[in-house]
Design a protein around this nucleic acid. Sequence first.
DNA 1: AATGAATGAGCGTTCATTCAT
DNA 2: GATGAATGAACGCTCATTCAT
Lengths: 211, 211, 211, 211
Amino acid sequence: MTKALDASEPRAKRSRGRPRGDARERILRAARRLLAAQRYDEVSVPEIVAAAGVAQGTFYLYFETKASLIVALADEIQRAIEAKIAACFSSDVPVIELVGRLIDAGAAVCRDHADILPFLRSEALLFGESRRSEELRKPHVEKLASLIQRDQRAGLLRRDLTPAYAARLISATLDQVARDVAGGSVSGNEIAYRDEAIAFLRRAIAAEARS
Amino acid sequence: MTKALDASEPRAKRSRGRPRGDARERILRAARRLLAAQRYDEVSVPEIVAAAGVAQGTFYLYFETKASLIVALADEIQRAIEAKIAACFSSDVPVIELVGRLIDAGAAVCRDHADILPFLRSEALLFGESRRSEELRKPHVEKLASLIQRDQRAGLLRRDLTPAYAARLISATLDQVARDVAGGSVSGNEIAYRDEAIAFLRRAIAAEARS
Amino acid sequence: MTKALDASEPRAKRSRGRPRGDARERILRAARRLLAAQRYDEVSVPEIVAAAGVAQGTFYLYFETKASLIVALADEIQRAIEAKIAACFSSDVPVIELVGRLIDAGAAVCRDHADILPFLRSEALLFGESRRSEELRKPHVEKLASLIQRDQRAGLLRRDLTPAYAARLISATLDQVARDVAGGSVSGNEIAYRDEAIAFLRRAIAAEARS
Amino acid sequence: MTKALDASEPRAKRSRGRPRGDARERILRAARRLLAAQRYDEVSVPEIVAAAGVAQGTFYLYFETKASLIVALADEIQRAIEAKIAACFSSDVPVIELVGRLIDAGAAVCRDHADILPFLRSEALLFGESRRSEELRKPHVEKLASLIQRDQRAGLLRRDLTPAYAARLISATLDQVARDVAGGSVSGNEIAYRDEAIAFLRRAIAAEARS
DNA sequence: AATGAATGAGCGTTCATTCAT
DNA sequence: GATGAATGAACGCTCATTCAT
């Protein structure tokens, strides 16, 4: 047929027909864009596929249902966030120093995903099998608890802290600060706020200076 | 704006018509029950009116649209929550004592509305521009900030705290504790956890004992 | 509003809006018309409602699914057929005479429902819970069996017939004749065919003339 | 007309490609299996190819459309049935004996194809104008009519039978008996039923014993 | 010959909403 | 005030089919 001939074309514009292999990616990106601006029930599959530039049937090649798309989308973003946070834990610094890094990483995350975070915080929670965001923070809280214990032994942190409890309290504080810093709630004073938060935590958990 | 929100007037005695219980109330209760178990987009008006035992048309006598029902429902619950939290601020106690009360009130709120909180945290937040959870907490954070300032002047709290910042940090911590206490994350040790959290905050903000 | 005014109009042409109460009937009639000409899978709900002159949503007010429409349609027609056949059994004639009446009734049925019978005989069988057409004939076959027994006792029919078996054989024959007569397979000779069939059955089942 | 029906040519050895079993055969077998359990409109091409273990595109190498698969499948089965029935006619026995054979052959057919017969009786019949069950039986009825004529000349059958009519009546009876015998409607008494049916027919058509 | 990603029309169905009663 | 039949747009989804590889 016309086959050998077409194949010799260096794979240029095919306006209809076969894959770029990127259909899934295009759909995810389009969905993210749309979900940043509208509720899940306001965004239709026709809208998503139109924005993605694929056919409606293609959607269902990659996602079982519309709902499963958000699970995938949330997973993707959360994986990225995880990675960024987990990186803070990899180096071997005292908790008192770690908190600063976690704030910065958290703020970066909030900034990078500012568009979609409201969505992630809201709708996505209702999609997975259960309480998702709690679950997601859990490993980090646990890691933090073990580092607290380590620093307690090293005499850096108060002995009367229960590591698991302290880890929760710190984590909540860090989240708040990261969000505030990224979200402009303290505009112009991010550094002062951050430093005050760190001092706040230090007083709450640091071992008293030996006399 | 001023349109969708105010179908709230309780109506007067109608002696004819079917339901004895007020139709509006029945609809709200049914919606709450259903929204505790399903997403907004999964709950239909037919479903709600069936659960409420009223006719489909009756729904539109009390709510302009399905979305406005959500707003009304969220308002109702949030008003109840507000009231409970605001009550803590009414008496004239030092911040260091206030935090304990806020934890207890917050935990009570979480327990009382456990069914519907995931819904409030998620979907409802996306309905009106102005009804993000940030906004809702704002008055309390501001009130707390002013109390911090008062206690600073009284020498009870550290002078180097920026009241607005400290208020945010405290608020985040209290939220976390209230949720943990109510949600069973620290089951069996609620009191120990609560007390440790209060001590944590005290160290962070209390003025150092004068020598 | 404009209500009292509109209501004074003597209920003339409402081109949109409220019921004639006949929506269900219109849908059934339209479906019958369409199913006489096309397979079930070729007839779409949009097509049916367009032919019926009702909105798509109205369809689902009266029928749970498209498939349940045919069950209803088949039931309706079969009830009419039942009635006609059952009427033959009501009077108290010998089986030998009854068969003639049954042929005539059967032929009338085939003619009256000529359009939809192929559909009923084919597709509809697969919709109900199980083998439908067998079930439907069963009561008549049983009634026939009991009449055979009666006539055996009266010496009108052969003693060596097993009533249940004979009833089946007669019934199959009658069906065939009714269909042939109505369907034009023996065009022009319907009466001769019918008479020969009756003679055929008489020889098969009548008691031998006493010598 | 001549188009949709003939994708039947068995193709020659293809040594490359995945399936060892011929793809066409696998598709037909899968379709038959599925159509025994579901209506035509419920069985999808994706489902068929999945059950057959071939790719979606492969389907269209062997069948022009989904509908043409049905026709091919029905043809295949009907050819097998034809052959079995036709075999009864091949030997040179009197009609009175033939009916017994036809019952047995018919019952065997019903048993062998029990799974797919409801499908054949229903949907398949509506696919081609020309493939109604009436048409399919016609050659056999005609053959039977000619044998009746032969036996009338031989003095074995009544002279007053119209061969074409008698053939129809006999055929309907045989069908009924075959179905009943195979379907368990007379369970345990198949032989008695069959014998009574034959006696029934003999009385109806045999020439009276000469005195 | 065989594949399977891609297509896009069109399905059955449900929805929020209206309004004559 | 309350009803519920009727609406029709729009939904999520599946389908039969194509064709570059």
